[in-house]
Design a binder for these strands. Structure first.
Lengths: 360, 360
DNA sequence: TTGTACGCGTTATCAA
DNA sequence: TTGATAACGCGTACAA
């Protein structure tokens, strides 16, 4: 027995009022006496009324303007995927009156961010989705949005922020922890594991340092096997590399690879740029050194297929965009509760299961 | 500029006909002169008309009855997940007039399947989703459904079948291949890898033998590294185990574990029953033997957390149910093209990323 | 062969 | 504080 179709009309009849009255209590628009209100509320409960969202979308001709702030996907390949996710969500929600405008900023220029954020704010949207790569500058806008009563969702980059509706993205700490497992797995001889940061301002980048903490914690918790032998002494070091175009990049990397008594077992690249390290391993025939990185960029995929990169951790960038928009839509059009935190899966990608994760 | 809202009314006006006429050509119901038809078609193209599915669902009060044939989820824990997926899809599509009825059969009794399949057929549904675990018996029903013009979708168990609308599920061959990678990864010493079938009628089960083929092919393709050293000689054997309650189960397993010169490196369990093998490894402190299996059952998760199971391959059973129903809905209510094959991702699950895949 | 008018469940306006 | 009633875009009898 599918509890089929209890309509506003039904509860109106049962409560001896008109549909207009029911509608008023349903959306507490006021202008209805308290006793009638209670009666209607009761009837709604009794009949277990569920609004027909389809009819609602059709009837109320209202539209919802959503503004998105994210780095320009034509300047950095990583941001293509979130962009695809946004577009997909936009397409699906179009019929519900949802319209999304993407404000792209240049991820290397603060001014660009400020300008776009300003534009987004002035457009008076009904909701905002933001990848807050500029920490400090974002905070000021959060304040403004909150005062204006505009709900906003953070994605991709976590900022501890109590006022935002939700954060959609990855758990950086756990992804570092997982990376530890992946570089270590199956290696029992003592040696060194490296976490490599490429051209990152670590001090100003919360999620990078969380990744490092997770990575180190993985090896730390390896210790206390109660009955087994103690784990071999692993040496965990982190290196900061400059831009790959900088000659110092090759110099530092080669020094690391050439140092015989380091016993280098694996490298974890804390960003999506594992493909910058891979050529050096390949050139020196050091495919035995485990290499783990992030994201299914074309260049990463290339080295995964060449067995130079062993694992990629997929942060599900497309879904980040998709669910970010969905969260806003859930709040605004479907009036659903939105969880404050939505961690996306950390997919482990190898050559053998890659095909299922690349966007066709 | 969002190409906002071109309605039937608009194209009717532009073509100097009534909405009724437009509707007739839209659904080619005939009864419209060819020249008018062409003109309307042209206008539709020019205006890039997209039907408003929401209004359509509301206007046409038609409902769609979907029948599902799958093993009883109260008798086998694996089937809980697909069931959840079905329910989720049903909930989302309810407002579009989609109603799904689940016909559960006992996966150990052919008669039960026949009875439920008969019932489903007689209910004259608008579409059928079936997990065809009984190969031969399913074929007869396919024939009937095809003759009755009822679209049907296969899920979970692949059967080469040209008439079905779609197959939604995993790629068994590739999952065996992946399992090969996972048991082998990081192990360079020669030794033996085992693929274990637990209480399976392999001859009658296509996907189990596909898994085995994939598994063996993984090791076969390891060979020809053009410049590197030849791969170590791996020995791949398969064993058929009886029901775990059968004393022969323990006997065979212990014989395998005790045989010193087998140099057993890893075991791949071809079904979701890795948890039946795990206790033996644990009891004998043979956690060094790699163990890989399928699916996030509670018992498997337990041994994953205990480091006895190293990897689980997630076949995404919940999504199988979800996308199975979605495929039917896409065809029937949204009139969309449905791909003949939808392979779900083969997620690699470890202790460290498990949390993101368990159904909360 | 074509056009008209009503209904789907909801919202929103306006008069009572 | 209430109740009619016209939209919303589409499907569909039924009339012409």
């Amino acid at each position: 027995m599918a509890k089929s179709a209890v309509r506003i009309k039904d509860i109106a009849a049962k409560a001896n009022v008109s549909v207009g009255t029911v509608d008023r209590v349903l959306h507490n628009r006021g202008r209805v006496s308290e006793d009638v209100r209670q009666k209607v509320l009761l009837m709604m409960q009794e009949l277990d009324y569920e609004p027909n969202m389809i009819a609602r979308a059709l009837g109320s001709n209202r539209t919802y303007e959503l503004a998105v702030l994210q780095p320009d996907h034509t300047l950095d390949p990583y941001w293509q995927a979130p962009w695809n996710g946004l577009e997909k969500a936009a397409r699906e929600l179009k019929q519900y009156g949802v319209h999304v405008t993407i404000h792209s900023y240049n991820l290397t220029e603060v001014d660009s961010f400020l300008k776009q954020a300003e534009a987004a704010t002035l457009s008076q949207p009904d909701g905002i989705l933001i990848a807050p790569l500029f920490y400090r500058e974002s905070l000021a806008f959060f304040e403004r949005w909150q005062q204006q009563g505009i709900p906003y969702v953070l994605f991709n980059t976590y900022i501890a922020e109590l006022q935002s509706l939700s954060y959609v993205g990855q758990d950086s700490y756990q992804s570092g922890f997982l990376a530890g497992k992946l570089v270590h797995f199956g290696q029992s001889q003592p040696g060194t594991f490296v976490i490599a940061h490429i051209a990152e301002d670590i001090a100003n980048s919360v999620h990078i340092s969380q990744k490092e903490r997770g990575f180190r914690d993985y090896f730390a918790q390896l210790a206390p096997a109660p009955d087994g032998p103690p784990p071999p002494p692993f040496n965990i070091i982190s290196i900061d590399l400059p831009q790959p175009t900088d000659p110092a990049f090759a110099r530092q990397l080669n020094r690391l690879l050439d140092d015989e008594h380091t016993h280098l077992k694996g490298i974890f690249v804390s960003t999506s740029k594992a493909y910058e390290i891979a050529p050096y391993l390949q050139a020196n025939h050091r495919e035995d050194i485990r290499l783990v990185g992030y994201d299914l960029l074309e260049k990463n995929i290339h080295f995964l297929n060449e067995n130079v990169i062993d694992f990629l951790i997929n942060q599900n960038p497309k879904k980040q965009g998709y669910w970010g928009i969905s969260a806003l839509a859930d709040l605004l059009v479907f009036k659903k509760k939105v969880p404050a935190l939505k961690y996306l899966p950390l997919d482990i990608i190898t050559k053998e299961n890659l095909q299922y994760y690349v966007d066709k």
